[in-house]
Amino acid sequence: MELKFINLSKCYGKKQALIDFSATMNEGVYALLGPNGAGKSTLMNCLSDLIEPTSGKILFDGKSIKAMGADFRSIYGFMPQSYGLYPSFRAIDTLRYFARLKGIENSEKKITQLLETVNLTDSANKRVKGFSGGMKRRLGIAIALLNDPKVLVLDEPTAGLDPKERIRLRNLISEVSFDRVVIFATHIVSDVEAIAGNTILLQNGRVLKSTDTCSLIESIEGKVWEAKVRNADEAILENSFRISNITKVSDGAIIRIVSDSKPYENAVSISPSLEDVYLYYFDEAASKND
């Protein structure tokens, strides 16, 4: 199975939302990481055939997804960042409706299974208008998984979920990624670290980095420091370097800094995390000092 993006670009008037995005994806979990306006949602919408890319193409197993049309959508699952549901429908009705839309026959068993997977069995017969934000999110995920998609795209899947549900969902995504392409966009870096085999960093529509997550973290090995600083020096350091964490202590603060060179006299090099990677590539203000 192969999902290939070839020089995909999208312009909204003068604004270039996506510039020459190219990538090849096979089975596994791919995380899209980037600040707001990086082009993550644009990419997802292009893949979902909701918007027309300005140039470039997307191929699935060598065939253009546009040409495949309904055939591609039958193996595609998508959960947008913001979406609505039918308030008068019950949860089970919503899934039945979308099962019809996805062309799934005899879907009752699958629906029951999915409701259990997303922990909505107790609320199956309740109307959606009474659902909390998190419950709606879980229902959205269930809808995306209805047709057992080969390509699953999730935009902020864990937003609004409590920690227990987040872990549950992360585990679910890991489980299902065995034989499908899973792409998800998120700002919760810990989710990416936990399950994404590959990470794509996007900024201003361009790909900054596209590699497996471990390599990405290793790429800033030796650039993450921890130092105990005096109160007076704290402000100076904040203005000069990328600070990923500050922990106040009795006589100062312990600061975690992302920097190419040693930032402070007593700073020690520590193992980097994905959050540090994010800061390293996306914190523009401090990057001027490097």
Binding site: S48, D49, A70, F78, Y83, Y86, L101
Partner: peptide, 18 residues
Amino acid sequence: SLNTHHLNMVCKNGRTKL
């Protein structure tokens, strides 16, 4: 108005058939 059109349009029967 309900913002469900995205969810519909990515389904197999969510465009012309719907």
